Simulated scan of single mutants.
Amino acid sequence: MTATNKITQLLNIKYPLIQAGMIWASGWKLASAVSNAGGLGIIGSGSMYPEVLREHIQKCKKATNNPFAVNVPMLYPDIEKIMEIIIEEGVKIVFTSAGNPKTWTKHLQDNGIKVVHVVSSVKFAMKSEEAGVDAVVAEGFEAGGHNGRDETTTFTLIPMVKEKISIPLIAAGGIATGRGMLAAMVLGADAVQVGSRFVATPEASSHPNFKNMVVNAKEGDTVLTLKELAPVRMLKNKFYEEIQELYSKAPSKEELIKLLGRARAKRGMFEGNLDEGELEIGQISGLIHEIKPAAEIVEEMISEFETAKKEVAQF
Protein backbone atom coordinates (compact mmCIF):
# COMPACT_ATOMS: atom_id res chain seq x y z
CA MET A 1 0.00 0.00 0.00
CA THR A 2 1.28 3.45 -0.87
CA ALA A 3 2.10 5.71 2.07
CA THR A 4 1.02 8.87 0.25
CA ASN A 5 -2.65 7.95 -0.14
CA LYS A 6 -4.92 11.01 0.36
CA ILE A 7 -7.45 9.15 2.52
CA THR A 8 -4.99 7.30 4.76
CA GLN A 9 -3.28 10.66 5.42
CA LEU A 10 -6.55 12.54 5.99
CA LEU A 11 -8.01 9.96 8.38
CA ASN A 12 -4.71 8.73 9.86
CA ILE A 13 -5.38 5.06 9.03
CA LYS A 14 -3.13 2.29 7.70
CA TYR A 15 -5.27 1.06 4.77
CA PRO A 16 -7.64 2.99 2.45
CA LEU A 17 -10.45 0.63 3.53
CA ILE A 18 -13.51 1.90 5.40
CA GLN A 19 -16.32 -0.12 6.95
CA ALA A 20 -19.70 1.48 6.19
CA GLY A 21 -21.87 2.78 9.04
CA MET A 22 -24.79 0.39 8.60
CA ILE A 23 -28.07 0.50 10.45
CA TRP A 24 -28.52 -2.44 12.90
CA ALA A 25 -25.13 -3.93 11.95
CA SER A 26 -22.30 -1.59 12.94
CA GLY A 27 -21.94 -1.03 16.64
CA TRP A 28 -18.73 -0.61 18.63
CA LYS A 29 -17.64 -4.26 18.28
CA LEU A 30 -17.48 -4.14 14.48
CA ALA A 31 -16.08 -0.59 14.33
CA SER A 32 -13.25 -1.34 16.79
CA ALA A 33 -12.40 -4.66 15.05
CA VAL A 34 -12.01 -2.94 11.66
CA SER A 35 -10.02 -0.04 13.15
CA ASN A 36 -7.72 -2.46 15.00
CA ALA A 37 -7.09 -4.27 11.71
CA GLY A 38 -5.86 -1.07 10.03
CA GLY A 39 -9.04 0.12 8.31
CA LEU A 40 -11.52 2.73 9.52
CA GLY A 41 -14.41 1.35 11.56
CA ILE A 42 -17.65 3.31 11.68
CA ILE A 43 -20.41 3.25 14.29
CA GLY A 44 -23.77 3.57 12.52
CA SER A 45 -25.83 5.98 14.66
CA GLY A 46 -28.96 5.66 12.49
CA SER A 47 -30.47 2.99 14.73
CA MET A 48 -29.33 4.46 18.07
CA TYR A 49 -30.90 6.77 20.62
CA PRO A 50 -28.42 9.50 21.68
CA GLU A 51 -27.41 7.82 24.97
CA VAL A 52 -27.00 4.45 23.23
CA LEU A 53 -24.63 6.14 20.77
CA ARG A 54 -22.65 7.62 23.68
CA GLU A 55 -22.27 4.13 25.17
CA HIS A 56 -21.04 2.71 21.82
CA ILE A 57 -18.51 5.55 21.39
CA GLN A 58 -17.17 5.04 24.92
CA LYS A 59 -16.86 1.26 24.43
CA CYS A 60 -15.17 1.77 21.05
CA LYS A 61 -12.60 4.15 22.60
CA LYS A 62 -11.73 1.43 25.15
CA ALA A 63 -11.52 -1.28 22.46
CA THR A 64 -9.21 0.52 20.01
CA ASN A 65 -6.47 3.15 20.09
CA ASN A 66 -6.91 3.72 16.35
CA PRO A 67 -9.19 6.27 14.68
CA PHE A 68 -12.86 5.37 14.19
CA ALA A 69 -15.82 7.37 12.91
CA VAL A 70 -19.56 7.83 13.47
CA ASN A 71 -22.03 7.84 10.58
CA VAL A 72 -24.94 10.28 11.03
CA PRO A 73 -27.98 10.19 8.70
CA MET A 74 -29.07 13.84 8.80
CA LEU A 75 -32.76 12.94 8.71
CA TYR A 76 -32.28 11.84 12.33
CA PRO A 77 -34.88 13.51 14.61
CA ASP A 78 -32.44 13.99 17.53
CA ILE A 79 -29.57 15.27 15.41
CA GLU A 80 -28.60 18.20 17.70
CA LYS A 81 -28.17 15.82 20.63
CA ILE A 82 -26.27 13.28 18.45
CA MET A 83 -23.80 15.96 17.27
CA GLU A 84 -23.37 17.25 20.82
CA ILE A 85 -22.45 13.75 22.05
CA ILE A 86 -20.02 13.21 19.14
CA ILE A 87 -18.22 16.47 20.05
CA GLU A 88 -18.29 15.81 23.82
CA GLU A 89 -16.86 12.31 23.36
CA GLY A 90 -13.99 13.55 21.18
CA VAL A 91 -14.85 11.62 17.99
CA LYS A 92 -12.45 12.81 15.28
CA ILE A 93 -14.25 11.71 12.09
CA VAL A 94 -17.94 11.97 11.09
CA PHE A 95 -19.57 10.56 7.96
CA THR A 96 -22.81 12.41 7.19
CA SER A 97 -25.52 11.16 4.83
CA ALA A 98 -29.14 11.73 3.75
CA GLY A 99 -29.21 15.51 3.99
CA ASN A 100 -27.56 18.82 3.18
CA PRO A 101 -23.83 18.73 4.05
CA LYS A 102 -23.84 22.51 4.62
CA THR A 103 -25.93 22.11 7.80
CA TRP A 104 -23.27 20.60 10.09
CA THR A 105 -19.91 20.57 8.25
CA LYS A 106 -18.50 23.87 9.55
CA HIS A 107 -19.69 23.28 13.11
CA LEU A 108 -18.03 19.85 13.20
CA GLN A 109 -14.81 21.11 11.59
CA ASP A 110 -14.67 24.01 14.07
CA ASN A 111 -14.59 21.31 16.75
CA GLY A 112 -11.62 19.55 15.12
CA ILE A 113 -13.66 16.88 13.33
CA LYS A 114 -13.02 15.66 9.77
CA VAL A 115 -16.28 15.46 7.76
CA VAL A 116 -16.99 13.01 4.94
CA HIS A 117 -20.36 13.17 3.14
CA VAL A 118 -22.04 10.24 1.35
CA VAL A 119 -23.56 10.97 -2.08
CA SER A 120 -25.10 9.00 -4.96
CA SER A 121 -24.63 11.51 -7.79
CA VAL A 122 -22.15 13.92 -9.38
CA LYS A 123 -24.42 16.87 -8.52
CA PHE A 124 -24.39 16.12 -4.80
CA ALA A 125 -20.66 15.39 -4.82
CA MET A 126 -20.09 18.91 -6.20
CA LYS A 127 -22.47 20.42 -3.63
CA SER A 128 -20.56 18.59 -0.88
CA GLU A 129 -17.26 20.02 -2.07
CA GLU A 130 -18.85 23.51 -2.11
CA ALA A 131 -20.05 22.89 1.46
CA GLY A 132 -16.42 22.36 2.48
CA VAL A 133 -16.42 18.67 3.39
CA ASP A 134 -13.03 16.96 3.69
CA ALA A 135 -13.93 14.04 1.39
CA VAL A 136 -16.93 12.36 -0.25
CA VAL A 137 -18.16 8.79 -0.50
CA ALA A 138 -19.74 8.19 -3.92
CA GLU A 139 -22.06 5.20 -3.67
CA GLY A 140 -23.38 3.27 -6.65
CA PHE A 141 -26.86 1.76 -6.67
CA GLU A 142 -25.45 -1.75 -6.16
CA ALA A 143 -25.17 -0.81 -2.48
CA GLY A 144 -27.50 -2.13 0.20
CA GLY A 145 -29.89 0.02 2.19
CA HIS A 146 -31.00 3.51 1.17
CA ASN A 147 -29.76 4.49 -2.21
CA GLY A 148 -29.76 6.97 -5.09
CA ARG A 149 -32.82 7.34 -7.32
CA ASP A 150 -30.81 7.50 -10.55
CA GLU A 151 -29.56 3.90 -10.48
CA THR A 152 -26.03 4.97 -11.41
CA THR A 153 -23.61 2.08 -10.94
CA THR A 154 -20.34 2.44 -9.03
CA PHE A 155 -18.36 1.70 -12.19
CA THR A 156 -19.79 4.78 -13.95
CA LEU A 157 -20.31 7.02 -10.90
CA ILE A 158 -16.69 7.02 -9.64
CA PRO A 159 -14.99 8.36 -12.81
CA MET A 160 -17.78 10.92 -13.33
CA VAL A 161 -17.41 12.23 -9.78
CA LYS A 162 -13.60 12.16 -10.05
CA GLU A 163 -13.82 14.39 -13.13
CA LYS A 164 -15.75 17.08 -11.22
CA ILE A 165 -14.21 17.27 -7.73
CA SER A 166 -10.73 17.84 -6.35
CA ILE A 167 -11.23 16.58 -2.76
CA PRO A 168 -10.49 12.94 -1.82
CA LEU A 169 -12.98 10.38 -3.15
CA ILE A 170 -14.11 7.13 -1.52
CA ALA A 171 -15.94 4.54 -3.66
CA ALA A 172 -18.84 2.49 -2.28
CA GLY A 173 -21.40 0.05 -3.64
CA GLY A 174 -20.62 -3.50 -4.77
CA ILE A 175 -17.10 -3.71 -3.29
CA ALA A 176 -16.28 -6.74 -1.13
CA THR A 177 -12.92 -8.00 -2.40
CA GLY A 178 -9.37 -6.78 -2.95
CA ARG A 179 -9.95 -6.94 -6.70
CA GLY A 180 -13.05 -4.77 -6.38
CA MET A 181 -11.01 -2.37 -4.28
CA LEU A 182 -8.29 -2.14 -6.94
CA ALA A 183 -10.88 -1.63 -9.70
CA ALA A 184 -12.47 1.27 -7.78
CA MET A 185 -9.08 2.89 -7.20
CA VAL A 186 -8.07 2.49 -10.84
CA LEU A 187 -11.30 4.36 -11.71
CA GLY A 188 -10.21 7.28 -9.54
CA ALA A 189 -11.14 6.49 -5.94
CA ASP A 190 -8.63 7.15 -3.15
CA ALA A 191 -10.24 4.52 -0.91
CA VAL A 192 -13.23 2.19 -0.69
CA GLN A 193 -16.12 1.87 1.73
CA VAL A 194 -17.37 -1.67 2.31
CA GLY A 195 -20.74 -2.46 3.88
CA SER A 196 -22.33 -5.79 2.98
CA ARG A 197 -19.13 -7.85 3.47
CA PHE A 198 -18.86 -6.68 7.08
CA VAL A 199 -22.46 -7.71 7.84
CA ALA A 200 -21.33 -11.35 7.59
CA THR A 201 -18.99 -11.10 10.59
CA PRO A 202 -19.32 -12.29 14.21
CA GLU A 203 -18.77 -8.65 15.30
CA ALA A 204 -21.72 -7.21 13.33
CA SER A 205 -24.66 -6.52 15.67
CA SER A 206 -27.23 -7.82 13.17
CA HIS A 207 -29.15 -11.05 13.86
CA PRO A 208 -27.57 -14.44 12.96
CA ASN A 209 -30.70 -15.26 10.85
CA PHE A 210 -30.00 -12.20 8.69
CA LYS A 211 -26.27 -12.96 8.43
CA ASN A 212 -27.04 -16.50 7.27
CA MET A 213 -29.52 -15.22 4.67
CA VAL A 214 -26.82 -12.87 3.33
CA VAL A 215 -24.33 -15.76 3.06
CA ASN A 216 -26.90 -17.85 1.15
CA ALA A 217 -27.94 -15.02 -1.21
CA LYS A 218 -27.39 -15.49 -4.94
CA GLU A 219 -27.17 -13.06 -7.83
CA GLY A 220 -30.56 -11.42 -8.37
CA ASP A 221 -31.76 -11.95 -4.78
CA THR A 222 -31.69 -8.23 -3.97
CA VAL A 223 -33.87 -5.51 -5.43
CA LEU A 224 -34.12 -1.70 -5.31
CA THR A 225 -37.67 -0.71 -4.37
CA LEU A 226 -39.89 1.88 -2.60
CA LYS A 227 -38.49 4.70 -4.74
CA GLU A 228 -41.52 6.89 -3.95
CA LEU A 229 -40.46 6.97 -0.28
CA ALA A 230 -36.67 6.51 -0.14
CA PRO A 231 -35.12 3.96 -2.54
CA VAL A 232 -33.89 0.93 -0.61
CA ARG A 233 -32.03 -2.21 -1.74
CA MET A 234 -33.02 -5.32 0.13
CA LEU A 235 -33.32 -9.09 -0.12
CA LYS A 236 -36.50 -10.49 -1.65
CA ASN A 237 -38.74 -12.03 1.01
CA LYS A 238 -42.42 -12.13 2.07
CA PHE A 239 -42.42 -8.39 2.87
CA TYR A 240 -41.04 -7.66 -0.62
CA GLU A 241 -43.81 -9.79 -2.16
CA GLU A 242 -46.35 -7.68 -0.25
CA ILE A 243 -44.77 -4.54 -1.74
CA GLN A 244 -45.04 -6.03 -5.24
CA GLU A 245 -48.66 -6.97 -4.67
CA LEU A 246 -49.46 -3.43 -3.56
CA TYR A 247 -47.60 -1.97 -6.58
CA SER A 248 -49.85 -4.00 -8.89
CA LYS A 249 -52.76 -1.87 -7.59
CA ALA A 250 -51.04 1.48 -8.40
CA PRO A 251 -50.85 2.54 -4.73
CA SER A 252 -50.72 6.07 -3.35
CA LYS A 253 -47.64 7.17 -1.38
CA GLU A 254 -49.76 6.96 1.79
CA GLU A 255 -50.59 3.29 1.11
CA LEU A 256 -46.89 2.51 0.68
CA ILE A 257 -46.07 4.30 3.94
CA LYS A 258 -48.81 2.32 5.71
CA LEU A 259 -47.43 -1.01 4.41
CA LEU A 260 -43.87 -0.07 5.40
CA GLY A 261 -45.02 0.82 8.92
CA ARG A 262 -42.46 1.36 11.64
CA ALA A 263 -39.22 -0.46 12.51
CA ARG A 264 -39.23 -2.81 9.48
CA ALA A 265 -35.42 -2.82 9.23
CA LYS A 266 -35.07 -3.49 12.96
CA ARG A 267 -37.53 -6.39 12.73
CA GLY A 268 -35.56 -8.10 9.97
CA MET A 269 -31.91 -7.20 10.47
CA PHE A 270 -31.75 -6.93 14.28
CA GLU A 271 -34.57 -9.20 15.48
CA GLY A 272 -34.14 -11.81 12.73
CA ASN A 273 -37.69 -11.89 11.34
CA LEU A 274 -36.85 -12.90 7.78
CA ASP A 275 -40.47 -12.79 6.54
CA GLU A 276 -41.74 -9.46 7.88
CA GLY A 277 -38.47 -7.51 8.06
CA GLU A 278 -36.74 -5.17 5.61
CA LEU A 279 -33.47 -7.00 4.90
CA GLU A 280 -31.08 -4.32 3.61
CA ILE A 281 -28.02 -5.66 1.78
CA GLY A 282 -26.10 -4.99 -1.45
CA GLN A 283 -25.94 -6.89 -4.74
CA ILE A 284 -22.47 -8.10 -3.81
CA SER A 285 -24.10 -10.44 -1.26
CA GLY A 286 -24.06 -13.01 -4.09
CA LEU A 287 -20.26 -13.11 -3.61
CA ILE A 288 -20.33 -13.47 0.20
CA HIS A 289 -20.20 -17.16 1.16
CA GLU A 290 -19.17 -17.30 4.81
CA ILE A 291 -19.24 -15.48 8.13
CA LYS A 292 -15.71 -14.60 9.22
CA PRO A 293 -14.02 -12.13 11.61
CA ALA A 294 -13.72 -8.52 10.44
CA ALA A 295 -9.90 -8.56 10.85
CA GLU A 296 -9.65 -11.53 8.49
CA ILE A 297 -11.74 -9.70 5.89
CA VAL A 298 -9.46 -6.65 6.06
CA GLU A 299 -6.36 -8.84 5.80
CA GLU A 300 -7.76 -10.83 2.85
CA MET A 301 -8.86 -7.72 0.97
CA ILE A 302 -5.49 -6.01 1.32
CA SER A 303 -3.61 -9.19 0.35
CA GLU A 304 -5.84 -9.73 -2.71
CA PHE A 305 -5.48 -6.04 -3.63
CA GLU A 306 -1.66 -6.37 -3.67
CA THR A 307 -1.78 -9.62 -5.68
CA ALA A 308 -4.21 -8.14 -8.22
CA LYS A 309 -2.04 -5.03 -8.56
CA LYS A 310 0.95 -7.20 -9.53
CA GLU A 311 -1.14 -9.22 -12.00
CA VAL A 312 -2.48 -6.05 -13.65
CA ALA A 313 1.05 -4.69 -13.96
CA GLN A 314 1.86 -7.64 -16.25
CA PHE A 315 -0.98 -6.99 -18.70
Rank of each mutant, 00 (worst) to 15 (best):
L274H: 12
R267C: 02
S285V: 05
D275F: 13
E254I: 10
G272E: 12
D275A: 08
G268H: 05
M269N: 08
S285Q: 04
N273E: 14
D275E: 15
H289E: 09
E278N: 12
E271Y: 06
A265N: 04
R267K: 13
L279A: 11
R262C: 03
L259K: 03
I284H: 04
R267F: 02
R264D: 05
R264L: 08
K258I: 03
N273M: 07
F270R: 09
M269V: 10
D275P: 03
A265R: 05
K258Y: 06
L279P: 01
R267S: 09
L287F: 12
I257S: 08
K266D: 13
M269K: 05
L287V: 04
I284A: 10
E271K: 14
G268M: 07
R262N: 04
R262F: 06
S285E: 03
L274A: 08
K253F: 11
N273P: 09
H289A: 02
R264T: 07
G272S: 12
G286T: 01
I288S: 06
E278C: 15
K253A: 12
G272R: 05
G268D: 12
M269R: 07
I257D: 08
E255A: 10
L279D: 07
G277D: 14
D275L: 09
E290D: 08
E255F: 00
Q283T: 04
E255Y: 03
R267G: 06
G277H: 06
S285R: 04
H289R: 12
G277Y: 06
R264C: 05
